[in-house]
Design a protein around this nucleic acid. Structure first.
Lengths: 222, 222
DNA sequence: CAGCTCATCTTGACGGCGTCAAGATTCTCC
DNA sequence: GGAGAATCTTGACGCCGTCAAGATGAGCTG
């Protein structure tokens, strides 16, 4: 690497404005990105720390200066998955007026994210990360996704009114659990298909999701 | 290298009534059993082929005479999981009259199996087995579990009558997908908890399951 | 600028892993 | 009882996660 002689604008600031830029630039982010690429390309089981380091162009032990162990790197990749999931739900849901179709849009976004990013989805919920709550960034990102669904469920319960929603209007946790469970189970079963996904009469994933989630909406609203 | 002049097994049964009893007795079943024990005791990630062999008292390569590779052993363990799941659903559901409570009993059995056998449950649906359809025994066992749920859903749709069930009475696949998705997602989320399972107002898993599945039943029946 | 300090990255090594190759042991069957 | 196949063992290879020790370069203080 010849020219890295690029000097930063020393015009000011004894403090570096960038967070960190030592030898590599930003190896931590590069490792997360390389890991996510491997997971999606070759599957969860093909991801090894040495492979990630190789893909990032550094030695095998370089990651240990940014992550305490392999699991910590996996947790960071999973956290980016939750952030992307939240972003996709935001994109698909924010433009839609009406709590019921908005809830359906969130479910569609959830299932679509899972089927378009199966590697990271398996990482986010699979057993490769033993204690997910041990990683604050992962916990926060997952709670953020949870709250997006919870807010949509609460808005839906409020829209249909208290006499329809029963006591759930004030405590939407159980209804949220049902909604998340439904889309999460559907996404998991689609991803681990091979069982018989085409056997049912649903042409594509989007309509299948709406078909399945409609059961819950009808149930929620009585 | 020192003396292994230990007396050989003199317990010489002339005719083995069992299907196969060569050196070990029935190593294949012993390996599956040891593997399931390790998975439940120490988690999915702690299961290695060498460890299973050690636990069964044989050398590291002995399993290769009964399974083509590690994944094949995992698939066999997962298949026993599906068989046990079907058995538990049978036990809980068969004694119950009425399609609606019977469907609820199946859901409860499903979630209880997942929470009582989290290791095997993760094996059955996690990413450790790449192509699940590549193992006939696993495929058959999982299809058998699927059909138990499908039959219960179909019976329920028939009980509530065609005008309530809509067109689903003749093709219960979508409704089955919804039912399976709901309990499967709930089981997964409970097992990977640490997020916030106690936050909602459900005391134990059984009532939580009934609470959540009641949404779907109300939805299915109108 | 000199020099210190520390974060960063490297090389080398250790034990455990999945799996193959080759040899030893034991069962089945004629 | 002997042939052949099934079963199990020892040994080895390369990849893995991770630790220890050293090299390199950035930023701070004087």
């Amino acid at each position: 690497m010849p020219d890295k002689a690029q000097a930063k604008p020393k015009s000011k600031a004894p403090k570096t404005p960038k967070p960190r830029a030592y030898h590599h630039g930003d190896l931590k982010a590069a490792l997360v990105e390389a890991g996510a690429r491997i997971v999606e390309r070759d599957g969860v089981m093909a991801l090894s720390l040495r492979r990630v380091a190789r893909e990032a162009g550094v030695s095998q032990t370089a990651p240990y200066h940014h992550f305490t162990d392999k699991e910590a790197l996996l947790a960071e990749i999973a956290a980016t998955g939750f952030r992307d999931l939240s972003a996709e739900m935001e994109v698909r849901g924010s433009a839609i007026a009406g709590a019921s179709p908005r809830l359906g849009a969130l479910g569609t976004a959830y299932v679509l994210f899972a089927t378009e990013n199966p590697g990271r989805f398996r990482l986010m919920f699979g057993p490769l990360i033993g204690e997910k709550a041990a990683y604050p960034a992962l916990l926060e990102a997952s709670l953020s996704s949870y709250q997006m669904i919870r807010d949509a469920v609460a808005a839906y319960l409020e829209e249909i009114g208290p006499e329809e929603a029963g006591g759930d209007a004030e405590n939407p946790e159980a209804a949220t659990m049902a909604a998340w469970s439904l889309v999460h189970g559907l996404a998991t079963l689609i991803n681990d298909r091979g069982f018989n996904s085409e056997a049912m009469g649903a042409p594509d994933i989007e309509t299948l999701t709406q078909q399945v989630t409609s059961y819950l909406r009808n149930g929620l609203g009585r």
